[in-house]
Design a protein around this nucleic acid. Structure first.
Length: 224
DNA sequence: TCTTGATCATTC
DNA sequence: GAATGATCAAGA
């Protein structure tokens, strides 16, 4: 674990210094073992970069860099720079949706300031051979926040009405909701149609690839 | 090929 | 069991 950066500038400079390294090179410096496949190590890339950048450890419900208010997200991209996967944001709070407003929502807090680190990872490239890309510190533009908020408000309306179980990954233009649990049979308490709590499948918010693709593309346009 | 729904590891 | 870090894999 590296010392935690004292300022956003220091964090970004450190992240820039990692660009061009393979994950194996980075892991070697940190004396971390490289898995042959990510199938049983799905969060490995994210934790590797957290470690390399000195994210102050897992205080629940706080950004990765708590003092800076910055969240770290690795983003697998293909050779053309397009994200290969959606981006996990946070779990959906299903139990007491009436108390939640956008301004104080976990989604808005998580996405207020995000350091995206693209990782070039075409299908078939082993984890150790994947390349760290140039970091991008992102804060939503008013237009982007409006898109996120519109989707979030729509999801929340459905959840408050007791139909969280009926939300699918097709709902939401940029912010989708998908199942998120240890198993498909996992259950948490959530509001049902009658207004009472019932056991439903846990879910989480994800950013669609199209949304993160535009963020990445915008930074590319600025840097050329 | 792309997305959706499912799954894996770790920590608390 | 819940939250955080994500990617897998089957079906559309």
């Amino acid at each position: 674990m590296r010392r935690t950066p004292a300022s956003p500038i220091e964090l970004i400079e450190r992240a820039r210094s990692l660009a061009g390294l393979t994950l194996a090179e980075l892991a070697g410096e940190l004396h971390i073992e490289v898995p042959a496949t990510l199938r049983r190590h799905k969060g490995w890339v994210g934790r590797l970069l957290e470690d390399a950048l000195g994210a102050d450890a897992s205080t629940a419900q706080a950004p990765d860099f708590a003092a800076l208010g910055i969240e770290l997200k690795t983003l697998p991209v293909d050779a053309s720079g397009k994200p290969r996967e959606s981006t996990f944001v946070t779990c959906v709070e299903l139990a007491h949706p009436d108390d939640i407003r956008w301004e104080t929502s976990h989604v808005r807090q998580k996405l207020a300031s995000v350091l995206f680190i693209p990782v070039l990872s075409e299908k078939g490239i082993p984890p150790g051979d994947r390349l760290v890309g140039q970091p991008l510190l992102w804060q939503p533009t008013p237009a982007e926040e409006a898109l996120l908020r519109a989707d979030w408000e729509g999801h929340m309306r459905t959840i408050r009405q007791g139909y969280a179980h009926a939300i699918t990954a097709r709902d939401g233009e940029v912010l989708q909701i998908r199942p998120k649990g240890a198993r498909a049979s996992s259950r948490v308490w959530g509001v049902g149609p009658s207004g009472d709590l019932e056991l439903i499948q846990p879910r989480a918010y994800y950013l669609r690839t199209g949304f993160t693709a535009r963020i990445i593309a915008r930074s590319f346009a600025l840097s050329t």
